[in-house]
Structure formats: C-alpha cells, structure tokens
Design a protein around this nucleic acid. Structure first.
Length: 855
RNA sequence: GCCCUUGUGGCGGAAUUGGCAGACGCGGCGGACUCAAAAUCCGUUGUCGCAAGACGUGUGGGUUCGAGUCCCACCGAGGGCACCA
C-alpha cells in the first residue's frame, strides 16, 4: 500500500529526549511502530497529541517583560457569543492566524489576543425567548466558543482574554463615560431619535440602514426623547484628516465609506432677514455663489423655526396638519425616490440679502431639521430638489449659470461649474471665483461667513435594554445629572431575576427600584439612577487597549504598557464594521490621546477585511437551508484541512463559496506533505549545502516567495508556493537525489515551517517526526541564501513581432550584444523570419529578445 | 441617478506591475496497484486542428517592438451613497 518503490524506510519515532512529547503520543509508543500506523495521516490522533502539549508550552504568551523581541500586535475582531463558532469565524481567525504566526516565525513578540463582545441585544433576546438569564446564557456560549477556539488552534494569548459583560471590564466603560462627561463630550439632549419598534429601543444613525433597523430589519420610526450622546462631531475634522495616514494601509473602500459618512462640505452661512421677526434666520449653503438665483426659502417642517413662523398666520392650521402627516412618515417613505415634493406656504417672507427680493417661506419635509440650520435658501435653477419643488408650487426660476438648456423648461437643474449670469457683481465669473467673491462680500457686510458642515451626527448611546453597561449617572431633583463617584464604580447590573426583560419602550432597569433608588452623591437626597444602558459599540471601541493590560484592577490599562504595544499593527475583520465600529474606535482613541492616555491618534495601523463564506452563491443561514456547520466539517476533515481550504480558496478579501472549496483536497495535500517527514533520512544538522542544488533552489525560492506573499496578504499564493515545494521534494525523493540527500531534510523542514502558519497540527507532527522538539511555531523562518534565488542560466524568450518563436538557454550575465547575436542565428528564428530582413531588435537581457522584421 | 471595485479554462484562482497567459488546486480523462472498490501514485487536461499551426484574458478601438496589465468608448457583475442644500 503506502510503500512505494525502493528506499522507503520505516520512520522512527521522535527521540526520547523530547520527553513530554513522546509520552503524549498515543498509538506511537505502544503499538505504533509499524509502517502502517506511521505512514497513515490520522488527523484526529495528531490533534489529540498536540493540543495538550501546546497548552503546556503556551508558545504564544506575549506578556514577558524582559522579552527582547520587537513587538507586533495582531488583532482579530472579537466574536459575539451568540452560539458556537461558524464558518465565517473559521475563515477570519484562520487569516488572522496566518499573519500572527508568520510574524512569530519572523522573530517578533506577537500579541494576538481574543475575547468576547458579550453584551447586547441578540443575547438578551435569545435569553427572553428561552426564559433564561442572559448572564448564564452568555457565559455558557462563551465557554462553548472558547473550547472551539482552543481546538481551532489559533495562536491566541490565553492570558489576555476579556468579556465585555464582566464588571471588571464595563467598570472602565463607565469610567470613560464619566471622563467624557467631565470634558463635555458626553451630554444629554432632547431630540427626535430613531426608534426600533421591535427591539423597543433607540438606535444610533449608524444602526439605521435604509430606514430599517440594522439588526432586525424593522421599519424605524422617530421619537422625541432625551438621551445621552457622545460628541463625536467635535472630532469630525480629525477623523477625516487623520485618514491620510491610513492611505494605502486600509482598504480604499473603507476609507471612502468613512469619508462619505462624515460628509464634510464647505460653503457659507448666510443670514436672511425675515419680515416680522427681529432675529435673522441663518442658512447653510455650499453654493453661496448662486444667491442671486434664490427665489424662495424653505424650513424643515419638524423644526422649531417652522412652528414659530407658522404661529399666528393664516397657514397655521394647514401647517399643523402637514406636520402631523410628516411625523407619521417613516424614513422609508420619506426617502422614497421620485416622490413628489410637498410643503406648505407659511404666509411669511425672507429677504434675499443680495438684492432685497422677498422670498416666500415654505415648510417642507425635504429639508432636514438636523442638518445645517434646518433652513435653506432655494435656488431652483441649480438644485434639483429646489427645482422639483418650484415646479410643483409654480415658483419662479432665475437662471444664474449660463447654459444651453433652461431648467424651468427641461426640469433638470444645472448644478456644475459655469459662467455666472443674472448675478450682478458675479457676472462672468466661474464657480470657484464666484464662491470666494460672494463669501467675502457677505463677510464684509456682516451678512454671512464661510462655514463647514458635516453629515456626521453625535453618537446616541442610550439604550432602553437590560444587557449592557449601566450609565453611571444619578438624577437628582436638585443637582440634576450627577456623576457616580469613581470609587463607587462599577455600577453593576442588578440581577435579571425578577425583572421583566421584554421590550416595552423603557429600560427594565428603571423597574428595579432597589437598584435604581439611591441618594444623590452630591446632596444625599433621594434620587434615581439613569435607567438606560450603553450601546454595545462603546464596549468594542476600546477593547483592543484593555487586552494590553486586561487584568489591571486599578485602571483601564497602564499607559506605559500601552506605549509598548499600541497601536495595533494589523487588524483583521469583516467589512460590515467599516463605518460603525471603526469610526467609534478611532474616535475613542483620539479622545484618549487628548486625555494623555495613549500616544497614537489612530488605533489600527493596517486593516484587512476578509470576505464572507457563502454557500451556493448566498449567505449561509438556517432559514435558507444552506448552512454548513463548522463542527461537522472539522470532524470530517480535521482542523488543519478546514483552515487550509479557507486560506487557499482565494484572496482573503474575496467571498468564498464553500461549494467551490475542496476540504478533501486540502486533507490530501496535508497527508502528502506529512508523509515526506517520515521519509527524510539525512540526520539533523546535515549540511544542506552538500545536497541537491535543484531542490535547494526550490526551497529557497519557496521560502522567499511565500514570505512575500504573506506580507502582501496573498495567503492563497503562499499556500501554492508550499505545494510547489512539496511537489519538488516528492520528485527529488522518487526520481532524483533520493531520500538520503541532505537537501531533502532542509526542504521538508521548510515545508513544516511554512505549513505551521496554516496547518499547525500537521506542521507540529512533521516537526516531531523530523526529530525536533516542539514547537515548530517558534522554529524561526529559515534564512534564505540569496545566491540560490539566482539561477546560473535562464530561458530567454525570442519573439518575432511579439510572438514567441524560440527559446534559448543562456547564462544570466549575458550581454545584450551577445544575446542578440545568439538569437539571430537561432534555427527556429531563421525559419520564422523566412528570409525577411530585420528592422529592429529589442533586447532585454537575459530574458527576452524581440525581433521586428521588415515589411 | 452619482461614486468605487471588478470581468482570465468546466470551477476557485496565479502572473516580480508592460515581457513565455493559465502557477497552485478542484473537477475531468488515461494508466499503475487491487479479486474489486476506496485510498495512494504516475501521466494528461485553454479552444480549434490528425498535424504543422492558428486563435485565445467581457466587447470595440488606441498607445507600444511587445498589452491580462496603460488610454478611450461600450456591455455585464458586485458594492457604497442616495433629498446632507
């Protein structure tokens, strides 16, 4: 069976000097010395053999203070403990592990932590459904995932784990919140907020996708509520400008999405007098140059200004009805495209500051109350929305940008650059000059000024749910909002026992009187705790800092340790978090920088977004019936084969269709590689330089190429290079220098080390069979002799008019003249030239000659 | 509608950035071993053609001695943004 040809010997067990290792090898020490047992790749036995060894050796512990190796922080997005790990986790963690293990092999002190994002709605909802305690349910799931992760054998430092639902963790959420509160970065305000009727809680803007709740797809409605916010808008410019240093290190797509989300625009504020009102009304516009084209004025229907302007006018009743109607609309309805414009004339007029024209004021729902000032000057010739509105209400259109088409006729606004007309002192100017001139004109007269605006809103963090971090504020009838003193932190969650967790629009914590009733920390009179909990994105906005010092009882982390490890060198996770989590984390990092806690201003040096794992073209899910269970696949093919299959399937950023992946093929390759380790006959330390030079070249090339591939995220290519080396070694043993050649040992050792990035069990077993002590994970990436990367001779391609017509084997150092001469006398070339003369010859020595014939 | 990304064998995907297209693997085909199968191993596999050869990287044009790679136009797929004044 497995014995092929001659020269196959029975491989010996690892030397006894390995002590604890050989003692742990079932089947090998007892009856396992037959060729049959030793030459069969038994992944279950291999997994069972090495897991306990690794537990003991802990090769990836990163906390030693005296570690002289340079640091590298590799971070995987931590999982949500909603059940066992699935295929998506398997891919993400396999990819992150390749990077972490590679840098460990390269001699870095790699910190590769893992923890659990353990607070949040899914856990709570699942708990409600089963009548279980969310706490018990969460910790059970964490235990399950933890066991799965251990078996999945990522290079995690198990000394650093954290759960965000532990009081020792969320205590520091509360501490940060209070630090922000002190600095005016956390504040409470009444505002119209997004409300999910299913989850019965408010949502941040970022959690509303196309008018639907990001988690449950319910249609989101609006509610006027007083809630806690974090002042992320204070950091808008820095969040935007600091992205320059991420250029080329983060996916362009993510940077673009963040830029769009922040949505900075520049223009001007313009003050308009309103008849019958003392104070002018200010509007924001990106096109102050089109002020002469303003023919009416619009205020957001749900703004305070609209109500004020309507009060006491003949239009008041109509306005009220319109407001009611607008309030009842969901974002879905409001944002529907090609929806006709609606509005109400308020019987009031604003005065255009540049020409004194009276502009009728309308209330409309197409103007947003929370962007800019909630009021706009309407320029129908240049703005499509204003033009649409003008056409519905028969308002005049004044063209201020020269164009062949008349917007009033065509219904298409002219919104680009162009020569200004009908614009008095701007006539004849282009856009840029006109904007500058008008802004200056306004500033000189106190009628306006240059201004910037953002799409980004402050981050609403209150949630009316149980399973989260309590907001550490006490509401006192006299003192108002009072911070819980730092020494009283954490404010722990009350027991869920006896609380009604079903969503009902107010926080379950508010009903826990024993918990909620406290004396005011300032004046001592009876007060109540804030009943809301924090958005779980607060938890994940700084967990990567806590890992650095996760057992610290005195502080969130030691700034000195953070100085050593921060920022994260490589972050790996799904693109689904391109806006929310990454934006919030960047914000937190900047706040902490301002607090003097961290040096860095950006948390994540490099970012890799892995794709999703699908099945038959769509996302795996139980309801679709196309769910591939990770645990089944692991049992069938083994951990290494699944990891290898996922890494080899394609570029990490691309989606993987499990239907296109061959786990069986991966297993076959691993067995093939593993078998080599039993055939090596040269002793440890044999001088490879004395071995077969072709195999030595192949080994050097493979190590070199695989390293380059890993460093540029082309992990699939790194695997292919490993496969090539296995093939070359196989060939060398079977039909070349033979198994005793020292180059064979060097090649197989290189295979084990390269394989250790993707298939740690197989690699470790190979390493032991080669006679080495564990762990292969820290064996070190072999030095490559650069002279082996350069061949003595190369194949020179001879082209005629760009088509390959001949090949020459030439020395690498050949001169262009010699090569040209050689090419021209080549028999194949002469035949193809068929007597035609030579016009020009392009020589790129030593690899290419291109001959251009005459005619 | 606007912006971005992308298009290579039956399939997943390679190609030192302008220099042998299809590395590596899956699948297929042929063979060895086997009573047989599985496993394993060897060979083969872009298309057309018996062959020499011709044609081939979504389509059409262009630049170049030479284009998967650069430029223009179009077509298809995926993603982001979408009343943000």
């Amino acid at each position: 069976m497995a014995c092929r040809g001659s020269g196959v010997r029975i491989p010996s067990a690892p030397p006894e000097s390995n002590g604890p290792v050989s003692a742990r090898k079932p089947g090998r020490s007892i009856a396992g010395r037959s060729a049959m047992t030793d030459d069969v790749f038994d992944f279950e036995a291999i997994q069972a053999r090495w897991l306990p060894v690794w537990d003991e050796l802990a090769p990836f512990r990163s906390g030693r203070a005296d570690d002289p190796r340079p640091k590298r922080y590799v971070l995987d997005m931590f999982p949500y403990p909603s059940g066992d790990l699935h295929m998506g986790h398997a891919e993400a963690y396999a990819l992150g592990d390749v990077i972490a293990r590679y840098w460990a092999q390269r001699g870095f002190n790699v910190m590769h932590p893992i923890g659990w994002d353990a607070f949040g709605l899914p856990a709570e909802n699942a708990a409600i459904k089963r009548g279980a305690d969310p706490r018990a349910w969460t910790y059970e799931n964490i235990a399950t995932q933890r066991a799965s992760m251990r078996r999945y054998a990522c290079s995690f430092d198990w000394d650093r784990t954290l759960n965000t639902c532990d009081p020792e963790y969320y205590r520091w959420n509360q501490w940060f919140f209070l630090e922000m509160f002190k600095r005016g970065l956390a504040y409470r305000k009444a505002s119209s907020v997004n409300w999910c009727p299913t989850d019965q809680t408010v949502l941040a803007n970022e959690q509303v996708v196309n008018g639907l709740c990001e988690r449950c797809d319910s249609v989101v409605t609006k509610k006027k509520l007083t809630q806690w916010y974090l002042r992320i808008t204070d950091y808008a410019d820095r969040l935007l400008d600091d992205m320059q240093q991420l250029e080329g290190k983060w996916p362009e797509k993510v940077l673009l999405m963040q830029r769009n989300w922040i949505g900075r625009s520049s223009g001007a504020e313009v003050h308009f007098q309103v008849e019958g009102r003392d104070e002018p009304v200010t509007v924001y516009t990106t096109r102050p140059d089109t002020l002469f084209g303003a023919t009416f004025f619009v205020v957001a229907v749900d703004s305070d200004l609209a109500a004020e302007l309507a009060a006491g006018t003949a239009a008041e009743e109509e306005f009220r009805a319109y407001l009611e109607q607008a309030k009842g609309e969901t974002d879905i309805e409001r944002l529907a495209s090609d929806r006709p414009k609606t509005g109400v004339f308020l019987e009031r007029y604003a005065i255009n500051p540049v020409n004194g024209e009276r502009l009728p004021i309308y209330a409309a729902d197409y103007v947003l109350s929370d962007y800019g000032t909630g009021a706009i000057m309407a320029v129908p010739c240049g703005d499509q929305r204003d033009l649409d509105f003008a056409r519905v209400f028969n308002l005049p259109v004044v063209n201020v940008i020269a164009s062949d088409e008349d917007p009033a006729e065509t219904g298409v606004a002219v919104n680009g650059d162009g020569v200004h007309i009908n614009s008095d002192f701007l006539n004849g100017m282009g856009k840029a000059q006109a904007v500058a001139t008008m802004t200056e004109w306004l500033e000189e007269r106190g009628l306006g000024r240059a201004a910037k605006n953002y799409r980004l809103r402050d981050w609403l963090i209150s949630r009316q749910r149980y399973w989260g971090t309590p907001i550490p504020i006490v509401h006192c009838p006299d003192c108002g909002e009072v911070a819980v003193p730092a020494e009283q932190l954490p404010v722990t969650l009350p027991d869920a026992q006896g609380l009604d967790l079903t969503p009902k629009g107010s926080s379950p914590l508010g009903a826990a009187d024993d918990w909620a009733n406290v004396p005011c920390p300032q004046c001592g009179q009876p007060s109540r705790r804030d009943p809301d909990t924090m958005d779980t994105f607060v938890d994940s906005s700084w967990y990567y800092l806590r890992y650095i010092d996760s057992r610290n009882q005195q502080a969130a982390f030691d700034p000195e340790l953070v100085r050593q490890w921060f920022p994260v060198d490589q972050y790996v996770g799904g693109v689904t978090h391109a806006i929310l989590h990454l934006l919030y984390s960047r914000f937190f990092t900047k706040v902490m920088h301002d607090m003097g806690l961290v040096d860095a201003v950006e948390p994540f040096e490099r970012l890799l977004n892995q794709g999703m794992v699908q099945m038959d073209g769509s996302a795996m899910s139980k309801s679709r019936g196309n769910l591939v269970r990770l645990s089944d696949e692991l049992a069938l093919h083994g951990v290494d084969a699944i990891r290898l299959a996922l890494v080899f399937a394609g570029p990490p950023e691309d989606d993987i269709d499990w239907a296109d992946v061959s786990a069986a093929g991966s297993k076959k390759f691993l067995a093939r590689a593993w078998r080599l380790s039993g055939e090596v006959q040269a002793p440890i330390g044999a001088d490879a330089a004395a071995g077969d030079v072709e195999l030595r070249r192949a080994t050097a090339r493979a190590l070199h190429d695989a390293a380059l591939a890993v460093e540029s995220y082309r992990f699939n290519v790194a695997v292919a290079k490993t496969m090539e080396l296995v093939n070359a070694t196989r060939k060398c043993i079977d039909s070349g220098a033979g198994a005793a050649d020292p180059a064979v040992r060097a090649a197989v050792e290189a295979v084990a080390i390269m394989l250790s990035l993707v298939a740690p069990y197989t690699a470790e077993d190979m390493w032991a069979r080669l006679g080495h002590a564990p762990s292969v994970a820290l064996a070190g990436w072999p030095e490559v002799d650069p002279t082996l990367l350069i061949d003595d001779t190369v194949t020179c391609i001879v082209q005629i008019s760009g088509k390959v017509r001949g090949k020459l084997e030439v020395p690498v150092g050949i001169s262009a003249e010699a090569l040209q001469a050689l090419a021209l006398v080549d028999a194949d070339v002469q035949r193809s030239l068929a007597g035609r003369g030579v016009k020009t010859v392009v020589v790129r020595a030593p690899k290419l000659v291109n001959i251009v014939p005459e005619g």
